[in-house]
Structure formats: C-alpha cells, structure tokens
Computed example of a mutant assay.
Amino acid sequence: MSKMDLKIRIRPAKPEDAEKLLAIYAPYVEQTAITFEYEVPTVEEFCERIHNTLKKYPYLVAEQGEEPVGYAYVGPFHDRPAYDWAVETSIYVYQNKKRMGIGKKLHEALEEELRNRGFLNMNACIAYPVQEDEYLTRNSVEFHAHLGYRMVGQFHQCGYKFHRWYDMVWMEKLIGEHTADQQQPRF
C-alpha cells in the first residue's frame, strides 16, 4: 500500500486503547534497542501510563479504519517548573506500517497540538547505535532531522540492551517564540 492509499485518522488516546497500543509497543521492547525497556509492561501498567500522560499532555492515536497503527505522546522534559515549555516526544508505529507517512502525520498533529497549548520546545531522546545492527539503526535520527529537529547532544555507551552498549542522542525542534514574559503552557 502506498502513502496515497493510506487513510489515517488522528484522535486523542484513551486509557481503553492500552491493549491495542501495547501490541504496537511490545515488539519494540522485545526485538529492538529503540526503547531501553527490558520487559513489556502489562496492559494495566500501560493503561495507567496513558491515563497519567493525559492529565497534562497530548497522547494521540493514528487509526487506519478502526485499528490503531501508531501513537505519539509527550511527557515532561524535566520536572522543574522552569522547563514547563519543553516536552520529550515519543512516536511508535506498527513495524509493518513504517515508511508509509504515519509517523509524520502523528508528529504533525502532535506539534500542532503542542503549539496551540503554548509549548515551545520538542525534544527527542533517541537510542543511537555506535554501529548499526539488527536491533538499532539511525532511522529515528534521520526521521527527526527530516521533521526539522537538530542534534544537540550525544551520550556515549549509556544504554545496555541485548549484550551491547548504545549511545543516546538528544534532538530538539523549536516550535514557538520564546519571550521574556512567556505565557504558561496550557496543560
């Protein structure tokens, strides 16, 4: 199926989506170093994660027909109030639906929602291979660069998974005007 044939609807997530969204996430935990989580969370734990995120931040689902094919959400960049305008982003797409434009649609909707709420900085913490392997490539960095992010930092050999060490990089995208009398974002 080409990008042109793909009819995607973006909607807010609900805690009741946990089981279907966990089905998207689980292979990332079990088969990749994209997330450094070792164990797949339970449906109940995943439901609680969605619920807690929605208290302050957007959590979006991409659907094809009635079936979720991806999701995106943000969390705090840091927990101190001076960082309230910055968020850390996460995007996951069914592995067999990658490179169809779903991640881009999710990001565009997420960016618009964040901008409308008064957030200014989108930050992505990305696992980065010292050398590409079967668990991790540089695709996520390339995806974010394509969306307008720039590299701002790299931590070396700080993540360990599948008996290998991986780097971590931070990328950022500024999405709003930074002023001296900044209005508080709308949580």
Rank of each mutant, 00 (worst) to 15 (best):
P15F: 05
E16F: 00
A18S: 10
K20Y: 10
Y25R: 07
A26Q: 02
P27C: 14
V29R: 00
V29C: 00
E30W: 03
T32K: 15
T32E: 04
I34P: 03
I34E: 06
T35P: 01
Y38A: 13
Y38I: 01
Y38N: 14
Y38R: 14
V40I: 15
P41R: 08
P41F: 04
V43I: 14
E44L: 15
F46T: 07
E48C: 00
R49M: 05
I50Y: 06
N52G: 11
N52D: 14
T53S: 03
T53W: 00
L54Y: 00
K55L: 06
Y59E: 11
L60Y: 09
V61T: 07
E63T: 11
G65Y: 14
V69C: 11
Y73M: 11
V74A: 13
P76G: 05
D79P: 13
R80K: 13
R80G: 01
P81Q: 10
A82I: 14
D84H: 15
V87S: 10
E88C: 01
S90M: 02
S90H: 05
I91Q: 03
V93D: 02
V93H: 12
Y94S: 15
Y94A: 15
Y94W: 14
N96T: 10
N96H: 09
K97H: 03
K98C: 09
R99A: 15
R99M: 14
G101P: 12
G103W: 05
K104V: 01
H107Y: 15
H107P: 01
E108L: 13
A109E: 11
L110K: 03
E111P: 07
E111H: 05
E111M: 06
E112F: 08
E113N: 06
E113T: 09
E113A: 06
L114S: 03
F119V: 01
L120Q: 10
L120S: 08
N123D: 12
A124C: 01
I126R: 06
I126Q: 06
A127Q: 00
Y128P: 08
P129M: 11
Q131L: 02
E134M: 11
Y135V: 03
L136Q: 04
T137Y: 06
R138H: 12
N139I: 00
S140R: 11
V141R: 15
E142N: 09
